[in-house]
Each structure stands twice: as structure tokens, then as C-alpha cells.
Design a protein around this nucleic acid. Structure first.
Lengths: 239, 239
DNA sequence: CGAAGTATTGACCCATTTCAAAGCATGTGG
DNA sequence: CCACATGCTTTGAAATGGGTCAATACTTCG
């Protein structure tokens, strides 16, 4: 069951069986998309939203010279562009990192859900707010941390999120990003990311090679990153 | 009518008269709060959410040494911590900048609204997504712009938002922030903010003195900031 | 084997920070 | 009405983190 993934591991807000079924019935199609492919363009009027089932996608904005700034990285179970449902257009682009599998939901289906299932609607809403909480953490990372802290913070976040869904264990996980990608996420240059990774490796905190991340000392890394993971566990309750 | 302010000027999503009335009836209390006072602390369990009626508030996170990073500035008509309704706790602090007037809504009232008025619920949801869109713009600002661009971008955003609600005209508006506050918003030091402001003044783009902002050349400032205001006008439609 | 993307390293440069001091308002109590 | 404290703004000089440019290796993969 595909809809099962939605919100899996996030807080303790798994869906009820009925809600899973409602969502499952709303799936309009399931698609595979290859790596490094844009799936939504900023400004497009869109009629469907995308639940990520397998793989990684990112959201980003371009500056005047075409340089990207990543604003989010999504992992399986994330409803990538659900916010496009109330907003209708996106202010940014979305692209796959590695190859992915996604489920598409038409907005009129979602509209029906909001009219009939306020409880499920609140969970959909909640999931968009988790994204906003991550945005805030990214603002903090860029505004207050130096290069080492930023890289460390990003890896801490991804590790925590992937652990929740069983895709990381013991600080180890696969991540289809290159060093330039990390630079786009952290507001650094590719060259400097390389140097920072070397330092982190030499300090035996972390290795990153060919998409394989090994966090060697989670405590020290979290300290360097000033990482506090509560924001990932929204404490939604159902009033 | 207090609820009238909510979403005023944002896109064209003003509320219907019925919706305004529903919201108006939901107001539990109206309070005045003096300048520079914390109104919500990170991690607190909260039962009410706050609509800003007059004045400015900011949201921020502290780093290990207690330095703040602002993650949002709110203007009248913003539902400051509506996201606390689905989330129950905040991951950050909220404080007033100048003195403010706020309206408080109990979460059980909002809960009733979500059960009876899906249409209004979607607008509430939408307003939290506008905040998320602003977060993304802040990520872009910090990740891709230099000091001048960041300051310019922040002023462009505030100018645009205040114009929508009739609090800015001709690039002029009051803003109860100090230079250190600007530093906390832009990830710079107070000293450097001062130097950047001097440069912007010398280039006749902008003056900022004692809380009074005068944007002298909106075009040039927007260009320097790589500012594109579409994100402020969510294009919500009602499916 | 060659091509293209990815990773690595060095040298130099510049934006921003840091540290330090002084100048200005504003408000309070004597 | 003055004295003093407090917080904001301004400026200078020195230190530094990260950027830029340029060259070289390492991997896949066709």
C-alpha cells in the first residue's frame, strides 16, 4: 500500500486505516522518474501534487546567474509539493536527485478530501508545516553556522530523517548528492565543500564518498552542527 | 472588525463576509503587548494562536552562544503562529519588535472551524504556506546573496508586504528594528550592517534612520536584491 | 580507450568578522 | 536642569573564512 508511507515515522502521526484507504484511492498515477530531471517548474499552474515513494528530490531557486540554492531535500514519505494545492503555483523548481518513484494526486481529489475528512486534512496541513519547520532550520544553518557547521547540520538532519523511515542505520546511509549539490544546499562553493569534507574526515566525524555517508561520531557531529532534532517531530495532536 | 485584517491584501484571497464573521466570533481576547517582549517560547505547549492586528513581531532561534537568527518578521494581518495549531508546539521563539495589538484564538475554536468550514480552513492553511514561501526566500537570501543584496532584499520584501496593507507608500515606511536586529535577520554582524547601510545611502538607494525607511530607487534596489515579489502573492484558487 | 562528470589541491584575493574606541540619543533620578 | 547610564550608531585597523581561478587526478561508462 503506497499511501502507507505518508507521514511514516514523523512524530506519531501515522494515518488511521480509513485515512490510508482514502489516500490510496486518491492516487491518480504512479510514475518512475530518472535522476536529475526537473519535475515542476516555478510559476507553472499545476493540478497535481506529488507524494515521494522512493528516492530523493530537491526543491531549489535560481539566482540571476543561474546558480541554484536548494531550499529542501525530500525523502520517501514526503508529500513534496502538497503546498501547491492551496497555492496553485510554485515559487520554485523541483527536480529529482537520484531516480525516484512518485505517486500523483489530482487537486480535485484533494479538494474532496478537505471537504469530507477534516481530520485527514489536518494531517495534510501538518505535513506542509513540517516542511516549514525544516525551512526555518535551514535559515538558521545559513545564518548562524560556519562552513563546517552547515555541512554537519545538513548531514545530521538527513541522518535523523532517514533513520525515522528505516533508511539510515548507525549513521550510515546512501545519498545521491554530489559535492556541488551539497554546496547548493549550504550556500558554499563546491571547492570549499570539498575542503570541509576533508577536515571532517580527518577529525573522524564523517566520511562521504560516492553517495555513501558514514557518520562516525554522531554526538560530536551534532555538537558541531548545533543540531537539535525536535523540529523534525512535530507534536501534532488531534484536538 | 478585527478579523478583516486577516489575509488583507494577500493575493486576492480576502475572506467572504461569512468567513470574517466566523473568525470574528472566534476571537477569545485582544491584547496589547509592549515592545521587545517575548510572547511565545520554543517548546511550550500552546493552546492559542495569535493574529497580529497592529505592530511588528519576529520569530527567531538562538544559537549556542545565545545569538539570534530571525526566521520571520510579521506585519499586521499575519496569523503569526497559526502553525502551532496543527503542531501544538513551536520550534522557535516569538517576540514583539515595537508595541503590538494581537487577537488570540483558542485552538479548540480553530478545531471547530476546521470541522465546519473547509473553505475557510483552506485559507488558514494557505496563510501558513505563505509564511513557508517567505522562509524559502530567506533561505535564498542567506545562501546566494552578499551583504548588500541581503539587506536590500529584506527591505524590498518588507516594502512590498507593507504596501499591500497600506502601511508603505512610495517606498517609505516605519520599521521598529535596529541595526543589530537587521543583522540578526540577515546573518551579518551589526557593524557590517552599518557599513552596508552607509554604502546604500551613498549610492542613493535607501536610507534607514531611527526606524524610518526610505527606498529612494525601488528599481535599482530590487535589482541589487534579485528581488522577485511573486512569492508574496500566493495564487490560491478555490478548487 | 576516450569522454564527461566528479573530486582534490594550491595560491591568491576579498568580503565580512572581530576587536576597540568614540560619538549620539534618550531617559531617569537627584 | 544636570549627571549619568544605557543602548544605538559610526569608524578604524587587523585578522580570517571562504571564494576564485587554475590545474590535476580519479571514476564511471559507453
Amino acid at each position: 500500500m503506497i499511501s502507507e508511507k505518508f507521514l511514516m515515522g514523523r512524530g506519531r502521526h501515522e494515518l488511521s486505516n480509513e485515512e490510508k484507504q482514502v489516500l490510496e484511492d486518491g492516487i491518480e498515477s504512479v510514475r518512475q522518474v530518472p535522476a536529475r530531471k526537473q519535475i515542476v517548474r516555478a510559476g507553472d499552474l499545476i493540478e497535481t501534487s506529488t507524494l515521494l515513494i522512493e528516492g530523493f528530490v530537491c526543491r531549489y531557486m535560481d539566482d540571476r546567474e543561474g546558480q541554484r540554492q536548494l531550499v529542501a531535500v525530500h525523502v520517501p514519505g514526503d508529500f513534496v509539493d502538497l503546498h501547491a494545492f492551496p497555492m496553485k503555483r510554485l515559487d520554485h523548481d523541483i527536480a529529482t536527485l537520484g531516480p525516484v518513484k512518485i505517486a500523483c494526486f489530482e487537486h480535485r481529489t484533494l479538494q474532496t478530501i478537505t471537504e469530507r475528512y477534516p481530520h485527514l486534512t489536518k494531517k495534510l496541513w501538518f505535513s506542509t508545516l513540517l516542511d516549514a519547520a525544516m525551512h526555518r532550520e535551514w535559515i538558521f544553518r545559513l545564518g548562524r553556522l560556519g562552513a563546517e557547521g552547515r555541512i554537519a547540520h545538513l548531514f545530521c538532519e538527513l541522518n535523523a530523517r532517514l533513520e525515522m523511515i528505516g533508511m539510515a542505520e548507525d549513521g550510515q546511509f546512501m545519498l545521491p548528492m554530489t559535492q556541488p549539490d551539497l554546496a547548493e544546499a549550504t550556500g558554499l562553493t563546491g571547492v570549499h565543500v570539498n575542503r570541509v569534507l576533508r577536515v571532517l574526515r580527518e577529525r573522524e566525524l564523517l566520511t562521504f564518498k560516492g553517495g555513501q555517508v558514514c557518520i562516525l561520531d554522531q554526538q560530536k557531529l551534532a555538537k558541531l552542527a548545533e543540531f537539535e532534532p525536535q523540529y523534525l517531530y512535530g507534536t501534532h495532536t488531534d484536538g
